[in-house]
Every structure is written in structure tokens, then in C-alpha cells.
């Protein structure tokens, strides 16, 4: 399946991942991805018919918290690292 990584696919993945690859970097990424996929394609040799996908290795269930307010106003601490902020809010380029 590694041959799936053509120009369009690379463009598509970079939209999904919000990465911008240019020129040489793009070529390198394509060749790296091809190699990585060639490698992981090895899994196709493994017969997994009837095998359940294993999501969690340590069997745990029903980890809950009770519905009690435990946090106070921590706005300044949360906003401290924001690259751009205004009036207690995070600031980004207009979204539409």
C-alpha cells in the first residue's frame, strides 16, 4: 500500500496534519513515508482473522469523577502562555 503515497495523498495528509511541506522537504517526506509504510505493511503477513482489536491492555472500567466543582478562576495562569491575547481571551486570525 506504500505506493498510495503520491503527490495528491501527500497534499491531503498535510492538510489533515496542518503541515506545510515545500520542495526538497516534500520529496524527503514522500520517500520517508514510503519506506515507513513498506515496513509496517509487514503486518499484512499476519493472519488476524477473528482477532479482536485490543484497545486497552490493563483492564480498567468506569473511572469516573463526581459532579462537584473543584476548580476556581485560574484564567491568568491559563492565559499566561498565550502567544496573543486580548481582554482575557486568546486571540487568533479571524476564523471566517
Amino acid at each position: 500500500m506504500a505506493d498510495k503515497i503520491d503527490e495528491n495523498m501527500l497534499e491531503y495528509i498535510s492538510i489533515l496534519a496542518k503541515l506545510e511541506l515545500e520542495g526538497e522537504e516534500k520529496e524527503q517526506a514522500r520517500s520517508d513515508m514510503k519506506k515507513m509504510l513498506d515496513h509496517v505493511d509487514k503486518l499484512n503477513e499476519l493472519d488476524t482473522d477473528g482477532v479482536e482489536p485490543l484497545v486497552q491492555v490493563i483492564n480498567m472500567q468506569n473511572v469516573f469523577r463526581e459532579d462537584n466543582v473543584t476548580n476556581g478562576d485560574d484564567r491568568n495562569a491559563m492565559l499566561k502562555n498565550a502567544p496573543a491575547k486580548k481582554n482575557g481571551q486568546y486571540m487568533v486570525p479571524k476564523t471566517f
Binding site: A84, K86, M91, V92, P93, K94, T95
Partner: peptide, 8 residues
């Protein structure tokens, strides 16, 4: 303006 503000 050219910016949007976020309230979480």
C-alpha cells in the same frame, strides 16, 4: 478587526 477572540 482581523482577529477572533476565544472564550473557553
Amino acid at each position: 478587526g482581523s482577529m477572533s477572540l476565544i472564550d473557553f
